Amino acid sequence: MSRDMLGLLRRLRRDPRGDLAADATGTPSPSSGHGELPLSANRAEPALSKLQLLVTRKLDGLLQGDYLGLLPGPGTEVGESREYLPGDDVRRMDWPVTARTTIPHVRQTDADRELETWLAVDLSASLDFGTAACLKRDLAVAAAAAVSHLTVRGGNRIGAVIGTGEQITRMPAKAGRKDAQGLLRALAHTPVRPGRTDLGGLIDSLNRPPRRRGLTVVISDFMVAPGQWARPMRKLGVRHDVLAIEIVDPRELELSDAGVMEFVDPETGRLHEVHTGDAQLRARYAAAAAAQRAEITSALRAAGAAHLRLRTDRDWLLDIVRFVAAQRHARTRGTTR
């Protein structure tokens, strides 16, 4: 079902007028390029609505109450215990600790705070590519929809910076699902522009102006050298919780034996002819791709960012569910609250 929805997003975005720029099998036409139009308003709404419904059904309830306040104070999250002092509310007595120590203790609580989430979404031309169930660009929009659904509740706010070519668009953080849906519509309607997004500058734009601590999510294929974005990512991780969502297509990891093929760099327009029947060439390509992904993983780990890899040939919702479950298990050390 999720693959069908991403395919619908792909086809609608490539043909807002109803004449699909694809062949009968749904494969993008080679003639489509930087001039593609974004989703039209009347056709984008049904696709985005179905995507939201799909995300809601699969992910609803996974992260409810799953982040803590940063300051002590009145709230519902259990904190540390301390010795009882005259004037303390007896309803907060921590009886298990009191019984063990024979000294009266009260349980402190952490204040509930609204969460501010910022998305840095890389929509450069390299994401307008896909050889499996969807384009990487559509998977990036779907990932943003999932993050939005999991974080926007209870007065939480979400904003975004969107990078397309040399242009960076900022959308202020707002509360409520209506504004979050407007953000997703803006992502879906963003046109493809030639050129490569400055990923380091895009990430660094989340550091200016300084914001209170929150959650930042970087969505990209990270197809630039880590030296260009590793430092801004580390700087971002000093103050915020960082999640990096890496978008990958299987043809970026290995080549299939399909004879002589033409490859066009979507960001520069350069054309290369490659003889994919050469087994040694395919082996070198796979080794280089594995080394590149290992370098990306190492840079993200050094920045202290959580790393989620989504592939266009896999069930992206299942990967998100597994990631959330693993993060919860690591945070609670396998226990439940």
Score class of each variant (00 low, 15 high):
Thr312Gly: 02
Arg17Leu: 07
Ala291His: 11
Asp278Met: 01
Cys134Asn: 14
Glu45Pro: 01
Ala291Gly: 11
His105Met: 13
Gly304Arg: 12
Leu119Ser: 12
Met5His: 08
Arg107Val: 05
Gly176His: 06
Leu9Tyr: 06
Asp66Lys: 11
Ser256Ile: 05
Val90Ala: 11
Leu48His: 04
Ala44His: 02
His307Thr: 00
Glu80Ser: 11
Asp23Glu: 08
Arg170Ser: 13
Leu236Trp: 04
Asp319Pro: 03
Arg137Gln: 01
Leu51Cys: 03
Arg193Gln: 07
His272Val: 01
Gly154Asn: 06
Val90Pro: 09
Ser2Gln: 13
Ser220Ile: 00
Gly65Met: 05
Val147Ile: 07
Val141Met: 02
Ala144Asn: 05
Arg177Trp: 13
Leu53Ile: 01
Gly200Asn: 06
Arg185Lys: 13
Ser298Ile: 00
Arg213Trp: 01
Thr312Lys: 03
Arg14Trp: 13
Gln292Ala: 15
Val90Arg: 15
Val321Arg: 13
Phe323Thr: 00
Leu63His: 04
Lys58Cys: 10
Asp88Ile: 02
Arg107Met: 03
Lys178Pro: 00
Ile158Gly: 00
Pro74Ser: 14
Asp88Ser: 13
Asp313Leu: 02
Ala144Tyr: 09
Thr101Gln: 14
His329Thr: 04
Arg282Cys: 01
Tyr67Leu: 05
Ile247Asn: 08
Leu9Ile: 03
Ala47His: 02
Arg331Tyr: 06
Asp204Met: 02
Ala111Leu: 07
Gly159Pro: 04
Asp265Thr: 03
